[in-house]
Design a binder for these strands. Structure first.
Lengths: 207, 207
DNA sequence: TGTACATCAGTGAACGCGCGTTCACTGATGTAC
DNA sequence: TGTACATCAGTGAACGCGCGTTCACTGATGTAC
């Protein structure tokens, strides 16, 4: 029985964490197994005990990243919904919380592993690319459900491309991360999220 | 004297073009000089006649990409401005033209080299990273100037983060490209641009 | 409680291949006089 | 107009290093009886 309080080193998890930050800095191909095992203080063969090859590392990284991403969003919107019954205000509160969370990240230059992978996708097998696509569709579905509820209560004055508006949640984060990295300015992402929030408000809130 | 109509092979340009599409598919580190020279039908040493090392290739790629990017935008907004005197309508027309242009790209999965580089930026020297940052600041400045003119004529009802709104032009394109690649759906980018256009309209247009 | 065996989490040495880079050289074209 | 030289746009062979991967092996812990 695995005791969650027992702090055994968990080499595999450490390798994945090291790999993630290396890949976000240099890309997957330039991240060598040698550097990971050196940082984790194990031998190269130790790596191959945990992953049968480098492709399996990529798969595990993506799985871990997507699961974490989903957990954060689930938690965020659950908290927002507890504060509010109205679908529009619930989303606006959630987006505000999201912006605050992104403003308070401890990391210096955050990045999205899915974005990194999508600009190197020829390196990966179909399974990984499909995981990546599924995770974006997850964002789309999550936000679309909220917009459907909002539209029912607050019919917009003009026709709205609800699918694009749902996708913009993810798109806006990806874009904000890229600009934040390019300009080394961590305020860009949270401000982009607040701007998306403005768009949602202007689109649905009766004036 | 170089005659622009003389169609000499221009090996260097061909190498840059081949490198760009390879890098957008696999990343810079996984793009080998061997594959480029094979595709260009020259020998490996021929490559080193044009570029002193791989880093100089990266530099030339970025330079070329940014110059092209700037030229496209200059042309686009010049055309939009010829159709219109009003700053708000000029921008709205420009964004519509932009969306149409992006909807009619011949490429299957377009991508942004600057985004690719920024997710591998540890591979590159400061000069390249600075070029990349300068190009984003170029977008910011371009759109900021337009928003300043718009605000003077159409004061917004509520306070607006004009810098973030300017950055969103680039951010929105980056995000749209990423989602388009992940889902292999070329309609995503133009629809995101139209949504940004909606935000601009809703923010400034008197109701 | 003691013993036999299985599993876990690795080690250490070796491998071949592909990568970026160098170097001496070359044939075609351009320029000076 | 002919000749000497320089530049352009490469070629071909060789280099050493780092990479991902394999393989036989090991000491510590867990489980069955």
């Amino acid at each position: 029985m695995l005791d969650s309080t027992s702090r055994k080193p968990d080499t595999r998890e450490r390798l994945l964490e090291l790999a993630e930050s290396a890949v976000l800095a240099k890309g997957f191909a330039a991240t060598s197994i040698d550097e990971l095992v050196a940082a984790a203080s194990i031998s190269k063969s130790g790596f191959f005990y945990h992953f049968k090859d480098k492709g399996e590392l990529a798969e595990a990284m993506m799985q871990r990243y997507i699961a974490h991403d989903k957990a954060v969003l689930d938690d965020l919107f659950q908290r927002a919904d507890e504060l509010n019954d109205d679908p529009l205000h619930g989303l606006l509160v959630g987006l505000k919380l999201f912006a605050e969370m992104m403003a308070n990240l401890p990391e210096v230059h955050p990045g999205c592993l899915a974005a990194s992978f999508c600009y190197q996708d020829q390196l990966f097998n179909k399974k990984i690319r499909d995981m990546n696509a599924a995770s974006v569709l997850g964002w789309r579905k999550r936000f679309r459900a909220r917009f459907d509820a909002i539209v029912a209560k607050y019919p917009p004055k003009q026709p709205v491309d609800l699918e694009a508006l749902s996708d913009m949640a993810a798109s806006n984060v990806e874009g904000g991360l890229i600009l934040g990295r390019m300009l080394k300015d961590v305020t860009i992402l949270p401000r982009q999220i607040l701007l998306y929030r403005d768009l949602v408000r202007l689109t649905f809130q009766p004036s």
